[in-house]
Design a binder for these strands. Structure first.
Length: 229
DNA sequence: AAGTCGATGGACT
DNA sequence: GTCCATCGACTTG
């Protein structure tokens, strides 16, 4: 069959799918919910919690994500005003990485969602390193394990994700990233939703999701310890 | 422990 | 020229 994990997608400079090595896949590598309409991107984000992402010899379990909808629907989305050279891949098919440089020093990693032409995406905000701890430490320095991928820019560093990952597929192993189903699934009851970070508009819509109580989450900590240790 | 603020560069109007 | 989906060093208590 001609089915690719990344239908409709072709990199301008890179191997064609037909040229890629045949990877024996132990099961389907596309996930229909990634292609859900942009209007349902919040549910897609929630679903990604607990899923694992491997890159650069490190594998993380996603613990915190944020949903962004597309053109005209979400003022906080890079795609809000339509496609630009930077946001081009957001308008492509789901299952690809959208990386961008921010604040002059940080990279952030998103997974493109929605139907082709819709610019929905999920920002990966935090994860727990479940494999490749030494490699993660090499990149992140001598920090606590829970801090290795806590925060979107730290997550990108831990996985060695920068510009070169932009537009690559995260489903079929053709790029540096590979998404895989949860080793330990996350029940709905374990998930908390709240406002997105740094987003003033649409503050009423809780499009940030995290695993409740997980130490790797960069969640607001409204309740602080009452006493010093 | 929690708040403040500077660094630093590209996209977009 | 302005805006940023940030981080971490520094300050204060």
């Amino acid at each position: 069959m001609t089915t690719s994990a990344c239908p409709g997608y072709r990199r301008e400079h890179g191997p064609r799918f037909a040229d890629l090595p045949q990877v024996p896949l132990s099961g389907a590598v596309d996930y229909p919910w990634l292609h859900a309409p942009a209007a349902e991107v919040a549910e897609t984000a929630r679903t990604l919690l607990g899923w694992e992402l491997a890159a650069g010899g490190v594998r993380i379990r996603l613990t915190e994500v944020e949903a962004y909808a597309g053109t005209g629907e979400d003022p906080a989305s890079h795609a809000h005003r339509g496609p630009t050279p930077r946001t081009r891949v957001m308008f492509g098919p789901a299952g690809h990485a959208y990386t961008y440089f921010v604040f002059g020093m940080h990279w952030c990693l998103n997974i493109v969602c929605g139907r082709d032409g819709e610019a929905a995406a999920v920002l990966l905000r935090a994860g727990e390193v479940v494999d490749g701890l030494p490699a993660a430490r090499t990149r992140r320095g001598d920090v606590a394990d829970r801090d290795l991928a806590r925060g979107p820019a730290r997550l990108a560093v831990a996985l060695d994700v920068t510009a070169s990952a932009n537009g690559t597929c995260v489903l079929d192993g053709s790029g540096p990233l590979l998404l895989s189903p949860p080793t330990r699934p996350v029940a709905r009851a374990e998930v908390t939703a709240g406002p997105r970070v740094g987003v003033a508009a649409a503050h009423d819509v809780p499009w940030r999701f995290w695993i409740t109580g997980d130490p790797t989450v960069s969640a607001y900590r409204r309740h602080v310890p009452r006493r010093r240790g």
